[in-house]
Design a protein around this nucleic acid. Structure first.
Length: 250
DNA sequence: CGTATTTGACCCGCGC
DNA sequence: GCGCGGGTCAAATACG
């Protein structure tokens, strides 16, 4: 269960920006260092980001569910809670996913975006529940799961699914208008262009080839052993820093 | 009163 | 086929 060190080099949040992953996944190679972070921009003053891991949906589990809508009409009718046709079964879509660990007292980290909690489930073999959040922006379907590590209860594991199609709402002036490169990202997930792709490719083949959720958990467990030591970085700092650096570069 | 959260019910995929 | 676990819905409730 432990010692999968070969995966540790894929992402290290001490140097890469969460914001890069959220908004500019095609630019994952662009790193910003903690030393470049503005000390005064902290919203998450007590958060320690430990690791970031790109997660690719299990391709084998996708195929069967991609043509689901008409066949489920009977179920929809007798289903007390009417499900909107496109709301569910998004599993068929190859939503880009990545996750990271954060050492924090609070479960829900403020990453600059606005999230609405839409569910919570007990996690098997864990006393801590898993929370499900969705981006509140109507046109944005990004979701994230938040759960606490079993090995180290001070570590929060956050898994993002999808890419924001809008600017960060909690941003300083000037950020609005800088658009993410979502189309590039979507294509890449399907095996498209270059630029950081290797990370995803490596993971999809080596870690998530059979059961995505299970493999994902296994990876987290193995990662925990070497995490959360002294990698002090602030999530919002990173976001803010990234935004500022973008402004400068622009 | 509008918005966010809670929570029980339900669906679906998967393993046995 | 059945049961389990993950994920989602939406009514009820809480909150500012």
């Amino acid at each position: 269960m432990f010692g999968v060190d070969e995966h540790q080099d894929c992402y290290n949040t001490t140097t890469s920006s969460i914001f890069d992953l959220l908004m500019f996944p095609s630019q994952q190679q662009r790193f910003i260092t903690c030393s470049s972070l503005p000390e005064s921009s902290s919203i998450l003053s007590d958060h320690l980001i430990s690791n970031v891991v790109p997660v690719i949906p299990n391709l084998s589990s996708i195929s069967s569910s991609s043509t689901e809508l008409p066949a489920h009409e009977d179920h929809q009718h007798k289903y007390k809670k009417q499900l909107k046709p496109n709301k569910k079964k998004q599993k068929g879509k190859k939503e880009p996913r990545f996750a990271f660990m954060t050492k924090s007292e609070v479960d829900h980290l403020d990453d600059g975006f606005r999230w609405r909690k839409y569910g919570q489930k007990a996690v098997k073999n864990s006393p801590f529940p898993r929370s499900y959040y969705r981006c509140t922006t109507s046109s944005c379907g990004v979701k994230k799961r938040v759960e606490r590590s079993i090995q180290d209860t001070s570590i929060v594991v956050t898994t993002y699914e999808g890419v924001h199609t809008h600017p960060c709402p909690l941003t300083p002036r000037g950020w609005v208008g800088v658009q993410p490169v979502t189309t590039t990202y979507g294509g890449r997930v399907g095996g498209g262009d270059s630029g950081g792709r290797s990370h995803y490719g490596d993971y999809s083949s080596s870690l998530f080839s059979t059961n995505n959720s299970l493999q994902e958990k296994r990876f987290w467990n193995s990662s925990n052993s070497s995490l959360a030591k002294d990698d002090h970085g602030l999530l919002q700092d990173m976001v803010s820093s990234r935004m500022r650096s973008d402004l400068i570069e622009e």
